[in-house]
Design a protein around this nucleic acid. Structure first.
Lengths: 116, 116
DNA sequence: ATTGAACGGTACGGTTCCGAAACGATCGGA
DNA sequence: TCCGATCGTTTCGGAACCGTACCGTTCAAT
């Protein structure tokens, strides 16, 4: 059961969610930050800096900086991998889970009110 | 006929499109820029700087700068309103229409492959 | 003709991000 | 015990963006 969207619906959905996010000015995450955040929350762990960089096709410092920013926002947390202390494991937080959940609700609400 | 999405589907959709955009690094628009672009392309004209700022709940310089950036990318164009020369009208461009169309296709493709 | 309001743009100092390169810490095999 | 490879982080100069405040133009009403 795939989700079928027509072009006008797809773009309208994206507009509604974007405008709502800008108006709410909750966190003002960049597209890269959002991609990292959702990957951590949706893809199965563990998540390393290098793994995330490879997944998104960006350099390591990009991921490090995004983790700095979102870490300060308490959306994610970092922990040393005790098995291999070179690695840093990125984990979810309670605040982050709440933020992601609400963001998903926003998408659903925007989709529900979409004209056919 | 509204579009029904479940939470996991909504978030997965956003992740797929975000990751694809980051990987493609086509234009790297911020959330604000995307909201402005889609509003110009989806809402009925005319679009003024002040009107867009009010629509998104941001200040004028934010819109001006976004128009500078996306104007340089040829995604939008500015024109003086000849009826009231204080106004600047924001208009679509061929390149912008193409970009928006492809972006919509990306959303549709991501939605179509969504697990139930 | 003058004045006040409305419009978009600009100047400013500060913050954040960028990519490339170098760095220290850690691991694993010779 | 080295020593190369693999981590994540930091540094660097440069670019983009932020919000506040101010500026020049244009309109409309007096």
């Amino acid at each position: 059961m795939s989700v079928i969207l027509r072009p006008s619906q797809a773009l309208r959905l994206w507009q509604r969610v974007s405008v709502a996010e800008v108006r709410a000015e909750a966190h003002d995450l960049s597209l890269r930050q959002m991609a990292i955040l959702l990957t951590v929350y949706l893809d199965p762990p563990p998540h390393t800096v290098r793994g995330l960089a490879a997944r998104l096709g960006v350099t390591k410092p990009v991921v490090t900086r995004a983790l700095d920013t979102m870490g300060a926002m308490k959306l994610l947390s970092r922990h040393r991998d005790e098995k291999d202390r070179r690695n840093v494991l990125v984990r979810r937080t309670v605040e982050g889970a709440l933020y992601v959940e609400r963001f998903g609700d926003g998408i659903i609400a925007a989709a529900a009110g979409l004209p056919m």
